[in-house]
Design a protein around this nucleic acid. Sequence first.
DNA 1: TTGCCGATCTTCT
DNA 2: GAAGATCGGCAAA
Length: 228
Amino acid sequence: MGPDVATARLPREFYPRPAYEVAPDLLGCVIEHETADGLVAVELTEVEAYAGDADPASHAYRGKTARNAVMFGPPGHAYVYFTYGMHFCVNVVCGPPGVAVAVLLRAGRVIAGGDLARARRGGRRGVPDEPARAIADRDLARGPARLCQALAIDRDQNGADLCDPASPIWVRAQANAPSRAATAATIKAGPRVGVRMGAEIPWRFWTANDPTVSVYRPHASVGHGKAR
DNA sequence: TTGCCGATCTTCT
DNA sequence: GAAGATCGGCAAA
């Protein structure tokens, strides 16, 4: 249907910019992952910018470690991390090589491969053969861990090159994307979700009035990590 | 709808 | 040893 330009990956040059500039530009773009089970595509509706060693909320704030090494590498790659003992989250690495800035993909709308996404989201961890739960379309990729589950993103995708034509995972713009000016009018910005330090920086960007945007939650510092 | 709670384990202190 | 860029279930309003 669409011409090649509709499915072209975002070029490498899209990424080496400050994360707070790349982040809003990603809204409306589509992340796709092709596996043996099929293709799932998610139109991004919510993202967050993280600015490396200058940002106390970033995983890179205290320098390079084994976990965050990908963020210090070249732009246009996927930084996937495991958190809370059971969830994966995915970022796109931005900025020039060596500068650990990235954009966390927080939520989106599944626009292709809905059945596959629902099947992946249906079974609970450790509960095989459980029938798929009735998950609303809006909830398929509503949240960073849900988005990863719908797209089957895990450790194996950490470091994946989103710009390599041979890579099974990529990000593209939409053929019918509205003008930059029209898009800007529908973009909202506010504090990032679940962060403690740097909580006042408005680097969460989302599409206004979109049901697939996750609900805002402040950092759960108290009450977590219960004593014992 | 909001709010609390437990699950579960990697990473860094 | 503690905290964490989270989520789903359940209760209450």
